[in-house]
Write a protein that binds this DNA or RNA. Structure first.
Lengths: 112, 112
DNA sequence: GCAATATGTTTCGTTGCCGAAATGATAGCA
DNA sequence: TGCTATCATTTCGGCAACGAAACATATTGC
């Protein structure tokens, strides 16, 4: 585990790599949602994410809109409760996260 | 060093803590600038940061405006070249970063 | 001294996110 | 059947960020 100044150093270099990477720059909330979809067990719903993050549901809806437009995830109807939707992964989203992990893990990849 | 999925897990939990923290939510660029001011040797100038981050100068100017308004840093004139400014630390900025480090280091701090 | 260059800021128009409130659709319950 | 609650979305006005270009000021070089 990183401790003290180390964690800030890591965070700083990771940010720099990601800033220079010229990919779509997601907000913290968008990034957290994306990571959750890919790293945590389904099902994922708007209300579930909103509760977890302690934000309102429109925040989730809008973040999903943005990332669905990018092709990083997709919505699917929940047949057992038609008020709900299920948020699902896409290949493009998986690739994006894989690249992101590589980028922040090894800052040299985007060094000048 | 974190590797593979680990780095994403760490990043995800750190984001969640920071989202729930109810502090000012800085953009990636703002956060990187702030970390640089506090962790890297002065002098720090607009042009220097812009070059480092590979962004345009207005991006830096506006980020400095935001964070100066928050009291996280201050501008000081460079007497040796009056076209330049020097970006300096503040107590409030140091406290913010210290809290941020604590928060992302120990997600339990903001657990429900 | 004066044109060319460099620094940081401001302006312009655009885009995107925010919270709060209202809406449409579905489900639960009596 | 109706009433209420829940889920997600949309709307509204406001705020903040973006890139590109123009700007004011200061410095450099001929």
């Amino acid at each position: 585990m990183y401790k003290g100044p180390e964690v800030l150093s890591f965070w700083r270099l990771a940010l720099l790599s990601s800033i220079r990477d010229n990919g779509p720059d997601l907000t913290s909330r968008q990034m957290y949602i994306l990571l959750t979809i890919y790293m945590s067990q389904p099902p994922h719903t708007v209300r579930g994410l909103a509760a977890q993050m302690q934000v309102t549901k429109p925040v989730i809806t809008r973040a999903l809109d943005s990332m669905e437009k990018l092709g990083f995830l997709k919505r699917a109807p929940d047949e057992s409760d038609k008020r709900s939707i299920l948020i699902q992964r896409t290949v493009k989203g998986a690739v994006f996260l894989r690249d992101f992990a590589d980028t922040i893990e090894d800052p040299a990849l985007t060094a000048e």
